[in-house]
Design a protein around this nucleic acid. Structure first.
Lengths: 207, 207
DNA sequence: CGATACCTTGAGCTGGTTCAATTCGCGTGG
DNA sequence: CCACGCGAATTGAACCAGCTCAAGGTATCG
């Protein structure tokens, strides 16, 4: 444990500050302690929000392809990081860490596949329900879930327009599944209904 | 090299035969020598084609989430595989292999992100052009690209119906970008046009 | 030849986009 | 405190890309 603490450093970022991704300087692995991170992909027509990271989630090492995206802080961020050399040093002592590292990337792969299903097979209502349900679960199922991004950016992640996102969110509010004291604050009244609306309740139950 | 050959085994599969994925028995890493593999995801409403593997591409170890999908052969398949124990043994001798293993999973992550962009941001024409262009490149840019799956399955991957896939493919044929001696055989006349039509030509060039 | 499985094409429908107003939350200055 | 302004969210209405449904067309095989 002492060894781990020597190798990891706690980095602080302000809102909109970029987290370095250049393999030489960037964190090799990271654990998000506080705040949110956003990953923007650079596409031919400007940047678009691609993924969010919530507290307790990890950053895993990036392959050469992945570096194209921008990673930046939303609000104040505390990030526990470790560079490649540091990781090599503790991995030498604790070989099991290498397997954990593989698991980290695999978890991201699973996440990417969930988005693939969302984008490939779900309609607008299911997409928005899925996002709300995922974010709610990933934030530890709080009474009030915080949306760290606006409707346009939710739309970018789900492949929808801001208008469609807004309509679906309001529909859930009218249906009594959520309450919206503010556009960015969502009180989840019925998490089960959200999951059902997301269209993958059965898969979850079968496993 | 001799050590590698002792650890890897060459497995043969027939068309539609399933490749084991149980983490205990499944190939831990694999190199596809001949034929094609398909990966089907089990969703609430039946199985759907998720991804294809072409000769020369690799199979990487699966996280617990990923095992839900079915991996099976399309036609006659030669697969060079290695189980977890075998991998541990040679990795002990050749530490660099561990990093390559990570790179393998990262490559899959990059691929998943390409599909995420396709499904989230592209229209039908761009999706079909992207698929054709990717498959063409991954098969080594042959004069005649082989589509190992039917229109319905192309549609499942791209989030389109078989009819839309058919219409777009015919449109490319009429535009003189491809030729279709048979529905499953695509002579790529103008690979550059395919890439332009796919909508990510600029990104490619910038890098 | 007939059967089968896949592909193609057409016609209408519709979910989601687009475009164009409002409306809301909130900081600012009078 | 209230009017004002601004950015985001919401709402409405028209439109259209892709879906659905239906009717052939075509390669392959026994």
């Amino acid at each position: 444990m002492r060894r781990v603490r020597r190798v990891f450093t706690e980095d602080l970022y302000e809102g909109d500050e970029a987290v370095p991704r250049d393999p030489a300087r960037a964190p090799f692995v990271g654990l998000l302690l506080d705040g949110c991170l956003r990953e923007d992909a650079t596409s031919p027509d400007g940047e678009r929000l691609f993924a969010l990271t919530f507290p307790g989630e990890t950053l895993s090492p990036l392959g050469p392809r992945r570096c194209r995206g921008r990673l930046s802080a939303i609000g104040a961020v505390r990030l526990l990081t470790c560079d490649r050399d540091g990781f090599e040093r503790i991995a030498q002592a604790v070989p099991r860490l290498r397997l954990n590292l593989l698991g980290l990337v695999q978890e991201q792969l699973a996440e990417a596949h969930r988005w693939q299903v969302l984008l490939g097979r779900k309609n607008a209502s299911e997409r928005v329900a899925s996002m709300l349900h995922w974010f709610h679960a990933r934030q530890g199922a709080p009474a009030e879930l915080h949306l760290p991004v606006n409707r346009t950016e939710l739309g970018q992640m789900a492949g929808l327009t801001m208008e469609t996102v807004s309509r679906q969110v309001r529909a859930f509010e009218k249906a009594g599944v959520i309450d919206l004291p503010l556009p960015s604050r969502v009180r989840v009244i019925d998490p089960g209904a959200l999951q059902t609306l997301s269209g993958d309740a059965r898969t979850q139950r079968l496993h």
